[in-house]
Each structure stands twice: as C-alpha cells, then as structure tokens.
C-alpha cells in the first residue's frame, strides 16, 4: 500500500518536472529538413563530431550513460530523441538551453545535420524526409587531384559547371581501417585550387599509397571521391616479436639469456653428474 502511494507520488512529480521544462520549438523550425542525404559517409562525419563535442554529456548512444543533469541530456538513440522531427533536433542543437551549450556559432549547418544523420542511424524505422530544393539549381561539381612533393600539399582543382570558381568548400581525409583522419578543410582560391597539408611521415602501405577521400561542396551540391595516391612513406611493417627479445617466442630468446641459462644449468648439472658417477666408484677406492 505504502509503495503504491510512493509510486503515485513519484509519477505525479515526474510529470510535473517534465511539463514544467517542456522545450518547445517554433513550428516552422520543427519542419526544417536536411538538404544533405544521410548516407554512410555523412553519418561517420556526425559520429566523429559527436565523440568530440557531445559524448561528455550525452554518453555513448544506446548505453543510456549520459550525465545525471536536470533536465537530463538523454540518450540520442532513445525515444526521447527519435520521436522528435529533424528540425526540432536541429533547432535545439543550434540554440541550446541551460546546460546544453549553444552550437550555432561553433558548428556549421552541415555539421549539425551530420549529427542528426548519426542519431538517425540508430533508428531502423527512420525515413529521411525529402528536401525541397525549389528553384535552386545544383551546380555540377568535378575535381582533379594532384600531390605536390615539393611542398607536401594535396592540390585539388575544382570545376563548377566546367568553370573554376573561388570559395568552394574542399575537405580531405585519409581513409583508415577504422575511420577517417581529417587532412583539413579549406576553400578554393581564384584559380579554383585548394591546398591541403599532408604530413609526409604518415604511414602508407608498402608502396606508400594512401586512400584519400576528397569532398567538395557548393551550396547543397556535394561531390566526393576516394582515390588511392602515392603520397606517404612506404611502410616498413615489422612485427613486434620479430627478432630476439624477452617478449618474443621461445625460439627467439635473446642470446645472452640463452647462454646464461644454459651455462648455469650445464655447469651445475655437470657437477651433480660428476658427483653421482663418483659415488658409484666409491666401492673401488681402497
């Protein structure tokens, strides 16, 4: 009985707290949809961003291990997030409230959409609403890649509808086994060229090849491609247990250890055997 009262009390109280702190989003903001397609690459961008800027409070999605703030930040994979339209999430990330920081001036719109793409990747039922591009004409983007060995820079030449143009966003990544390593983000100059630094000591494969993902964006138009380029040091792949070490396999024991061990064992057992054989000759001694 007592438990019932407690429970009722708790539920009432809970409702009160939630109601009191309802975070309302203006209707027109909530209707906003993403002009970017939520594809794998985009989700990965969001994941990297999330881990850098959001995990500390929101925890790992699906694990419900967010910080115990009031109101609670919530788990992005949870119903609390997934039941909201994209536009509402977009608005809340931009504007912030209380402990939730304002990201408007920190993250570009594209980046915020990538975060939402990441959140939606936990929701199997989600279907991305279509963006109405209206009469906006998407430019056709193309680019060429080159590596300038003298200055260790990746050179990207971008054509928008066949013409070079200044101010087109260019970003590049090295594609690794578990993720993307950003080389940088820049804009084309008046010659349509964008330069990105490449650390020459980056480990490539045996030939020094790296998979480079380049993405260019103008307005809502995005073009990207992954190219294998020979721009890194050929990697010398040596196994940690190659050679004679204390931590190597038994047949690769360090020589000093083998010698010391065997000398000691042979020395002591030599004497032991000498004595044992000597004892058997005891009888003959007069």
């Amino acid at each position: 009985m007592k438990n019932y009262i407690l429970l009722i009390f708790f539920v009432l109280n809970f409702g009160f707290v939630v109601n009191a702190q309802e975070w309302t989003v203006p209707a027109e903001e909530a209707e906003k949809v993403s002009p970017y397609i939520f594809e794998d690459d985009f989700v990965t961008d969001g994941e990297i961003l999330y881990e850098n800027s959001c995990t500390s409070c929101h925890g790992t999605p699906t694990e419900n291990n967010f910080m115990p703030f009031s109101p609670p930040p919530g788990d992005p994979a949870s119903e609390q997030f997934q039941s909201q339209p994209d536009g509402a999430l977009f608005y809340k990330i931009q504007k912030g409230r209380g402990i939730m920081p304002v990201f408007e001036n920190i993250l570009a719109e594209e980046e915020i959409w990538s975060l939402i793409a990441y959140f939606r990747s936990f929701n199997k039922e989600y279907v991305q609403p279509e963006f109405d591009y209206g009469d906006e004409v998407l430019s056709e983007l193309k680019f060429d890649l080159d590596f300038d060995e003298n200055i260790d820079k990746l050179v990207v030449k971008v054509f928008s509808d066949g013409e070079v143009e200044e101010g087109i966003d260019v970003s590049a990544f090295v594609v690794g086994m578990f993720g993307k390593f950003p080389l940088g983000k820049t804009k084309t100059n008046e010659l349509g060229l964008a330069y990105l630094d490449v650390d020459p000591s980056l480990p490539g494969d045996k030939q020094g090849n790296l998979d480079i993902l380049v993405r260019v964006r103008k307005g809502y138009a995005i073009e990207k491609a992954t190219t294998s380029m020979k721009i890194a040091e050929p990697a010398q792949q040596t196994s940690l247990i190659e050679g004679r070490h204390l931590w190597s396999t038994g047949d690769k024991a360090p020589v000093w250890l083998l010698v010391t061990f065997l000398l000691i064992v042979v020395g002591i057992w030599g004497v032991i055997l000498y004595i044992i054989f000597g004892l058997f000759r005891l009888k003959k001694i007069g």
Binding site: L246, W247, S248, T249, G250, L257, F261
Partner: peptide, 10 residues
C-alpha cells in the same frame, strides 16, 4: 613449449 624468457621455466 616453455619459453626460456619466462620466470616459470627458470
């Protein structure tokens, strides 16, 4: 299969 590097073998 003992490794001579291991104190257990010693």
């Amino acid at each position: 299969y003992g490794r001579i590097q291991s104190p257990i073998v010693w």
